[in-house]
Nucleic acid binder design. Structure first.
Lengths: 228, 228
DNA sequence: CGAAGTTTGTGATTGCGCTCACAAGCTTTA
DNA sequence: TAAAGCTTGTGAGCGCAATCACAAACTTCG
């Protein structure tokens, strides 16, 4: 199993296990944890946990479970979190500001190290000790400060252009909050977070259950009518 | 194909097609659009677009394409976006505030209609005309204002409790921004947006390509050494 | 009107991921 | 030391989603 490439679906779950393990480690100092417990904390089933972890290697002990500290280290290493990856935020509007001061990033070891915008109004303003710089300085900053992740929080129209500037500057990882599709070369990873798409998906399922409820209601009325 | 249930993966893409269609409709007034064009705009391949749309019904015309307005209407209807689904945000910190004033929601037809927190400091404060109310008023507000979507933007520890209060109040759709797993009854939909998990996933792939580059480098050195 | 060109809709195929189920290997108990 | 109990690691089977490939149905052109 080792040496086989780690499936994408598994990669996406590793951070969840990591969080669960941190919780175990910080709680009443249990030294080991079973796949069953991890599964409950991560909201998945135990077999999936075991299979996922088996891609990293055989880090568990049968009859015992997984050594919490050891597994923590292995996942951290596998995710590349032993190094730090400085990130830049481009587009310092509402969302960009919230991201700039979002504590979740620093808690998980990600450091926001530069902010960019093009609006004269906000240039020079400081957020959490970081000045907002002009987008034209992007390439320079990426090289000098070793920025490896670009976070796009611009309006949708600007997203593709910003993505291209990031790629041109050598950034290989992009997190896109703008509600638009960005195209990049195959050696660049893009992940997309689209807030209103999530609501639209919820709307679909909500509407569906509502439609079912309405249909049931209609049936009930018909049934009553027939009896009368 | 019609009447068969729409696959989850398709549902998740419908909002993307919707956005693309809106762009076409607002642009130079083209009346029809081909699966090829839609695919390019949505960043997927044409066959997938056609299969996805075929679940909604046969709304295209061979040799011509899809009628933009008609398809727009059908997707809107299928997603349940002809009705409005008032949403509440719980947890008005950095992120909650940004979400409260995020224009993307209103642009896509979602209305934030109530804000909740428990911090005395912020209660009563207004954001975009809405007062921040105490969480204890949640149930009451849900019933009175017909709130159908709950957006959790609290610290992780509070998320499960808030989710339970939402469920208790009758909310069936939850969007969770807190970095924690929430458990809800099977008739409630939860979608999760975890910002730092996205960065961790990017980190994995970044580290991987970096590791490959380093290995290549090492090989090159060895090759040179052998020659010498 | 017929042929060539477009574009959809969908059966067939392939691939990926999830779940099951159980042997292997550890601990505990007697 | 042997038996019972627990938990991992993984092959096998299954189902969903993606892709392929082509007939069907339309438009355009000569």
């Amino acid at each position: 199993m080792r040496n086989r490439p780690i499936p994408e679906a598994t990669v996406a779950r590793l951070p969840i296990y990591l969080r669960a393990l941190l919780e175990v480690a910080e709680g009443r100092g249990e030294l080991t944890v079973s796949s069953e417990e991890l599964a409950a904390m991560a909201g998945v089933n135990a077999a999936k946990v075991r299979k996922d972890l088996s891609y990293l290697g055989s880090y568990g002990t049968r009859g015992v479970g997984y050594d919490v500290e050891y597994l923590l280290y292995q996942i951290t290493r596998e995710l590349g979190l032993t190094q730090d990856w400085p990130a830049a935020i481009i587009g310092i509007g509402n969302l960009g500001r919230a991201l700039a001061s979002y504590k979740g990033f620093s808690e998980r070891g990600f450091r926001i190290s530069a902010l960019f915008d093009v609006d004269e109004e906000v240039l020079g303003e400081q957020i959490g000790g970081l000045p907002i710089r002009h987008l034209d300085e992007l390439k320079e900053a990426v090289v000098e400060e070793g920025i490896s992740i670009g976070i796009i929080a611009t309006p949708p129209m600007a997203a593709q252009e910003v993505a291209e500037k990031l790629v041109d500057a050598g950034v290989k990882s992009i997190l896109n909050f703008a509600p638009s599709v960005v195209n990049v070369p195959p050696d660049v990873s893009v992940r997309k977070v689209d807030l209103s798409i999530e609501l639209q998906i919820l709307s679909f399922y909500q509407q569906r259950t509502q439609a079912i409820a309405t249909a049931r209601e209609a049936n009930r009325r018909l049934a009553v009518q027939r009896k009368v």
